[in-house]
């Protein structure tokens, strides 16, 4: 596990954290059946923040970010995204989902649609954008993730890294305010991890609000402005990356870091 994610200097000119709150989670609890996955979660994400959520597997970190766009339903507490509270009101859910982009561990591209169609689908059907305009936007973002020449191929014909970059472009086409990343590099070969992380760094450089569940500690160190450590469904520790890595407070964090950085 490398400590640095990129050797180039990261352009921090647009990476500013505003006072405006993008995501506010208070006293949130969630159960899967009888299993208490998330306990008393309190989290505030400001606009422009890059947050990395880490922790051992089964600690509830994926579940946490999946609650933010209601892929999982929480049972107690309050989640407010962009001023809209998540409740069972479908209108709020649809509104939040169109403002919050998400990338998955397994990309989840739509295999029956071409790359371009994957990217234009939601703008056309959810944003009611004209096809031509949607295609232009899509090509713009595909160029950004450096695969415009694959636009007419199907996802099954692309490598894992390319697919993940398409997935990022697909989310960006909805012009989201917030991006959620659920272990975006965990199912990739080492040489492909790099290209996906580079795309994510570029996104961070443009000032995107990002919440990333990832084991890429190099990314956390260089790009994140806050690292959150979760264990057993609780937020155990949160701090700036430098403090977090050099000076972990709780024993569980120390153990986790020694395991993940030890080799």
């Amino acid at each position: 596990m490398s400590d640095v994610v990129t050797e180039r200097a990261i352009d921090r000119s647009k990476m500013e954290v505003s006072d405006e709150i993008a995501i506010h989670i208070s006293d949130m609890n969630k159960w899967f059946g009888n299993f208490h996955v998330l306990r008393d979660i309190n989290l505030e994400v400001r606009r422009g923040e890059r947050i990395v959520v880490c922790g051992p597997s089964g600690s509830g970190k994926s579940t946490l970010i999946r609650c933010i766009n209601r892929l999982e339903e929480h049972q107690q507490g309050k989640i407010v995204v962009d001023g809209t509270e998540l409740s069972s009101d479908l209108k709020n859910i649809d509104k939040i989902r169109s403002e919050v982009g998400m990338c998955f561990q397994h990309f989840n591209l739509f295999p029956h649609l071409t790359i371009l169609e994957n990217c234009t689908l939601a703008p056309i059907w959810v944003r009611k954008m004209a096809r031509k305009e949607a295609e232009e936007t899509a090509m713009h973002y595909l160029e950004k993730v450096k695969i415009p020449e694959q636009a007419d191929k199907y996802p099954g014909q692309l490598s894992g890294g390319q697919q993940q970059r398409v997935a990022i472009a697909r989310s960006l086409c909805m012009k989201p305010q917030i991006m959620l990343f659920d272990e975006p590099t965990s199912s990739l070969d080492p040489e492909m991890i790099k290209e996906v992380l580079d795309t994510m760094i570029e996104l961070a450089e443009e000032g995107m609000t990002m919440v990333c569940v990832t084991h890429e500690m190099g990314f956390a160190r260089q790009v994140a402005n806050r690292v959150i450590f979760m264990d057993d469904g609780q937020i155990v520790e949160e701090n700036e990356p430098k403090e977090f890595f050099d000076n972990p407070k709780s024993d569980r964090t120390k153990l986790f870091l020694s395991q993940i950085l030890g080799h």
Binding site: L71, R97, S98, F104, N108, L121, V126, R170, S171
Partner: peptide, 22 residues
């Protein structure tokens, strides 16, 4: 795979849209 449902939901497609298109 359940990911197809999740991806279409995460993009903001409604139930019927996602059934029809995805």
């Amino acid at each position: 795979p359940v990911g197809q449902h999740e991806a279409s939901a995460a993009l903001g497609l409604s139930y019927w849209q996602s059934q029809r298109l995805i």
